[in-house]
Design a protein around this nucleic acid. Structure first.
Ligand SMILES: NC(=O)c1ccc[n+]([C@@H]2O[C@H](COP(=O)([O-])OP(=O)(O)OC[C@H]3O[C@@H](n4cnc5c(N)ncnc54)[C@H](O)[C@@H]3O)[C@@H](O)[C@H]2O)c1
Ligand SMILES: NC(=O)c1ccc[n+]([C@@H]2O[C@H](COP(=O)([O-])OP(=O)(O)OC[C@H]3O[C@@H](n4cnc5c(N)ncnc54)[C@H](O)[C@@H]3O)[C@@H](O)[C@H]2O)c1
Lengths: 241, 241
DNA sequence: CGGACTTTGTGACCGCGAGAACAAACTCGC
DNA sequence: GCGAGTTTGTTCTCGCGGTCACAAAGTCCG
């Protein structure tokens, strides 16, 4: 999913034994962190891998292996300390401090994102909303004034922004991405249904609702086809045993 | 990502040689379809795998292999016919006809989704908006009246809905999912940051913005750390050759 | 203090998916 | 009609990721 390019030194190998957490694990760490936060809110101090895994919806062995990439933070025979593990995961992800984020394109979706409170509680702070449309200028959304797109570079520099969200129409997405990169942003979350071209070193993640729905539709089609077949063949339900 | 359970007959093996398209391929087919649609709009009749792959942002060999799962729809020495291939992909995904969809939770996000025009053009039709809150009842959003959550079963049955979207707070997500399944929905797109428990045969896909941002944050952290190291070690740029 | 029990951390195995390379098949020009 | 050129479809290999199973390590009770 991520268009993460290989490191700057293309051929260097760069096998620093420091840490290299598998991408699949990185994608699950936030889930674990959320579960742990929820446990902490219920004043649960300690927790086994089995319980954690169940709450996160994954296999317990997978969870243990994931956590082992960060170090040995559990106690055998007991489990994991909720607060301690939470902190370790947050530190690994890099959300012990807040990341400033900007949103470009304050339409339907952009406004919903700006109004969304879930970001601030999970390590992010929306510092600016930008839009190119004349009639959006000066309007206030979620307590922030909508600023002209031309101010992008200035804002990024002033607030040290490295993460940008794109919620403009697909046709404008590449232009916005180019401007973001030019301004110094190196991570982009893209909601527009467009393939973004970015230079090495810049990460792009895309969220595409139509694709998600179409994947569901595919499985629905097959379920329907399967059901038809089962009707034709008569019942196939496990009467074997 | 998908919590698709194994088929009804858990141990049956079900090796129907009919078709079994790899999940990774299924996730890319919608991207190809979008690219093809875009080409068709520009009156481009034919296209090589190389061009398609570039526009979709994937490797051309991978694209060819993906397409080969549907059959041999290309012409060697020429490429693919845009309209023909579009239709074949749409048929495989199952979006030659529209799928009725309902959205539950018409808050910030739900309203943005309801107002989003992109769904209808990609094989989906929002047939109902549901919300539990008293003050939402009777309001009209995107040309549809918001209906009480209690009407869920009735609507699903009347409109033959099999796909549901959840955009309620995380605490309510499991309840809504249960009700959806009870009503006969078998595919769920979940925006709430919660792990949903559903019976076998029901597909769930989740879209979690906080997780996406946290993954970006992780890579940002590492980029920052890397940059620090490079400064310490002096330049490491490819001077080797 | 020791043994039984619990739970972590990890080694081994397997299957999916990505990518490179190539043979087959088709078109087009002569 | 035929050869050169082009592009597909497929085979092979390799590495990542998921799962099982177990040894190591710690706790707790008698
Ligand atoms: N609304 C949804 O629920 C939804 C769902 C999935 C995907 N999307 C995607 O998200 C994007 C935005 O959707 P939306 O419904 O909010 O659209 P919208 O038309 O409501 O909003 C787009 C905003 O972007 C601004 N804009 C346009 N060009 C710009 C530019 N070059 N620079 C800065 N701002 C610019 C416009 O002024 C407008 O305010 C689209 O690509 C859409 O496909 C939206
Ligand atoms: N707004 C965003 O941009 C955004 C981004 C990421 C994730 N999310 C997630 O999407 C979900 C919705 O976010 P939101 O900002 O729209 O919240 P919101 O509070 O604005 O809207 C939630 C809506 O759900 C309704 N609701 C609550 N319980 C219900 C129930 N049991 N049955 C039916 N309806 C019910 C409420 O009446 C309300 O209208 C949340 O889980 C949130 O974490 C939102």
């Amino acid at each position: 999913m991520t268009a993460r390019s290989t490191n700057t030194g293309e051929g260097s190998g760069a096998q620093d034994p420091h840490r290299d957490i598998p991408e699949a694990t990185v994608a699950r760490l936030p889930v674990y962190l959320r579960v742990l936060t929820s446990l902490a809110e219920r004043n649960i101090a300690s927790c086994s891998s089995e319980e954690l895994a169940a709450a996160a919806g994954v296999n317990s062995a997978k969870l243990r292996k994931d956590l082992s990439y960060l170090g040995s933070y559990g106690t055998r025979g007991v489990g994991y300390d909720v607060d301690y593990l939470s902190y370790q995961i947050a530190r690994e992800i890099g959300v012990t401090h807040d990341w400033p984020v900007i949103i470009v394109g304050i339409g339907n979706l952009g406004q919903a994102l700006a109004n969304f409170s879930g970001f601030s509680s999970r390590g992010f702070r929306t510092v600016a909303l930008l839009d190119a449309a004349e009639q959006m200028q000066g309007r206030t959304v979620a307590g922030l004034e909508v600023r002209p797109f031309a101010d992008l570079a200035e804002i990024v520099a002033a607030e040290q922004v490295s993460i940008g969200v794109i919620s403009v129409p697909a046709t404008a997405a590449q232009d916005v991405a180019d401007a973001m990169v030019e301004a110094g942003i190196s991570s982009i979350l893209n909601f527009a249904p467009a393939v973004l071209n970015v230079p090495p070193g810049v990460d792009v993640r895309k969220v595409d609702l139509s694709i998600e729905l179409q994947i569901l539709a595919y499985h629905e089609s097959r379920k329907a086809a399967e059901a038809d077949e089962t009707v034709d063949n008569g019942s196939e339900e496990g009467i074997t045993a």
